[in-house]
Structure formats: C-alpha cells, structure tokens
Design a protein around this nucleic acid. Structure first.
Lengths: 79, 79
DNA sequence: TCATTATCCCCTCTATAAAGGGAAAAATTA
DNA sequence: TAATTTTTCCCTTTATAGAGGGGATAATGA
C-alpha cells in the first residue's frame, strides 16, 4: 500500500461524518478495532478490515507486473 | 477486491515457480497459511497477507470516490 | 511404471485479535 | 465556560489464526 492504511481510514471516516463508534457498529466490529486501525496498533484480520472498507466505500485492488497476464487468464477461465 | 485473492496468489506463485512451502518460508509464515489462502479457508491476518504479497511482488492499492481528495490532502500534509 | 515432489487435510498447542466494559483525556459545540 | 461528544487507553475474557507435525492423495517426470 502506497499510503498508510490508518490515514486512508481516518480520512474516509471523517468525510463520511461517522464517529469511530458509528463506523464500528455499521461494520459489525468492536470500537477498539477501529481505534487501533487508525492508530497503527493492530494486526487486524483481513475480514474485519474488509468490513470497514465496505462501509467506507473503499475497494481494494492490486498491482503487479503479472497483472495483465492474470486478467487474461481470468477471462479465459470463464469459457 | 475485484478478483478472488486465492486466484491472484495462486497465479503469481505458479508464475514465480514457487511451491506453497517455498512461498511460506520466504514469507516467514506457515505452510498451512499459504494452503488456506489459496483455498479460501482462512481469515488471514493482514500482516501475514502483506508478507506473502511482498514476496510475490504484488502491491495493494485502494479505490474510492474520495481518492483524489485524499491524495491532495496527503501532499498538503507534507508542508 | 516407479520415484519424487507437491498438495491436501487432518491434528494439537500457543499466541493474539477482538469484543465489551469502563473511565480519563481531548476535542466540539452550546 | 460549561456541557456534550468523541477519542484514547486501560482491563478481562473468548474465539480463532497460525505454527508445526504427519500422513494420504495427487501430480510431475525420469
């Protein structure tokens, strides 16, 4: 990730007008998890991170030198 | 994530010519974690996912309607 | 075909993520 | 400045991720 996850979360939460507690409840996680995420002090589980990103309308993507080749194979796999 | 994480990992590992065990050792995680990751049966910790992505030269990125605004603020924060 | 290598799928044990509570500190707002 | 809201940071308990071992099955290739 080019940018700090904590900064991304904080920015999007503030822009959404949510408190940590509200975000936590919407995502179905504990308030301390949101706090920890915004303060770089948790080794969070992916599924919980994804719940939070979903609430904030943030989508994860990946970049790699093999991405084009991967996408090509994905299309072929459909047939 | 638009695509299944398991597919992305598997594709990149194969292209790298690594076995599950080799990938696990390079990433400093257990072999069962790699197996579980490629078979959608683990709620992996973010730090361990990042270790594996790093070995495979995959970078995570995010997309959101607020991304441009976020990037602009990041630049301003430097000054 | 036989041997080698890789994957799959069990198991147990340990470390720790996460929930939930609470209360002080900090920030907002009236 | 006082009141309210939000954030920070403790705590304990519970659930589960992950390590490591082992063995059966599947795939690769000599």
């Amino acid at each position: 990730m080019r940018y700090k996850l904590s900064d991304i979360i904080l920015f999007h939460r503030k822009r959404s007008g949510l408190t940590q507690l509200e975000l936590a409840e919407l995502a179905g996680v504990g308030k301390n998890l949101v706090y920890g995420l915004e303060n770089d002090q948790e080794s969070i589980r992916l599924e919980n991170l994804l719940k939070i990103l979903w609430v904030l309308n943030i989508e994860l993507d990946f970049q790699s030198p093999l991405k084009e080749a991967f996408l090509k194979e994905q299309v072929n796999a459909d047939r």
